[in-house]
Design a protein around this nucleic acid. Sequence first.
DNA 1: AGTCGGGCGTTACGCTGTAACGTACGCTTT
DNA 2: AAAGCGTACGTTACAGCGTAACGCCCGACT
Lengths: 150, 150
Amino acid sequence: MAKDLEKSLKIADQRCIEQGLRLTPQRRQVMGLLLEQEGPRSAYDLLDELQSRHQPGAKPPTIYRALDFLVSAGLAHRLASTNRYLACGHLACDHGHERTLFLVCDQCGAVREATMDTPLKQALNRSLSQEGFTAGTQPMEMHGRCRACR
Amino acid sequence: MAKDLEKSLKIADQRCIEQGLRLTPQRRQVMGLLLEQEGPRSAYDLLDELQSRHQPGAKPPTIYRALDFLVSAGLAHRLASTNRYLACGHLACDHGHERTLFLVCDQCGAVREATMDTPLKQALNRSLSQEGFTAGTQPMEMHGRCRACR
DNA sequence: AGTCGGGCGTTACGCTGTAACGTACGCTTT
DNA sequence: AAAGCGTACGTTACAGCGTAACGCCCGACT
């Protein structure tokens, strides 16, 4: 477990270097908190955690800055529909996670980070171009019940 | 314009009667505010509007209760990613708006309520069943740039 | 040495949403 | 008619989410 954590943090270091970004100690701590968690967490949950574990004096802007950085660096995701954050589930793979789809279980809160297959991407792109709409980078989210909770 | 508003409110009345729900004067006023608007509005915007136009003493729970009712009755939608509300764009049509996709322009804020075509629905359903995930009723949202803002 | 920008601390504030309680009113049951 | 019941709504108070704005420090580049 702790091994996986360290390994993931190393990958995060690497990803930042590649992009010319700085994974400062503070940002790394927050990334560590995200990696430890099972599911998505709210910013204030993470703030509490950060305060009790690393930085007693941390204030809201501290956690939001770190999270914004991690999201923009592609190391974490923000679930817009529930105001929650989670580590990217595809840290290791290279395949730039464009067009991922989050499946959010409304019962247990679990989030599955699904990648869209080719036919789905194509059908979606066709619909979008028909509307003249250019998709941004924010992933899509779908709510429902996961396999375990059905 | 005002004609359309009245007509839409009549349809809303009808929809409620069909479902055995009560579109009270207060709820009807809020529905009217939603129908008047160009784009999606925040709950507090609507609260201000409600206060200045109909109910000076209205408080947050007033507007949230009305909005929750309208959403659950299928007369309005909530954009989870931006905390905004808008009247359902398909009030007139019968085709129960399951599987709609909101295209949200990050620049101008406009929202287009697109209906998924059959191939897209199929591709999506296949992906979901593969994951063992059962979709709920909440519509999906996609962010990007609309035709006009490109 | 000067300056420039990024990261961070700190304060203060605004927006979003709800819990919990009480009241009024219409409906059914007795 | 009286009692009981559920829904809508008023009201208070609070919890959670997020950011603007300011200033300091420090490393990099000239």
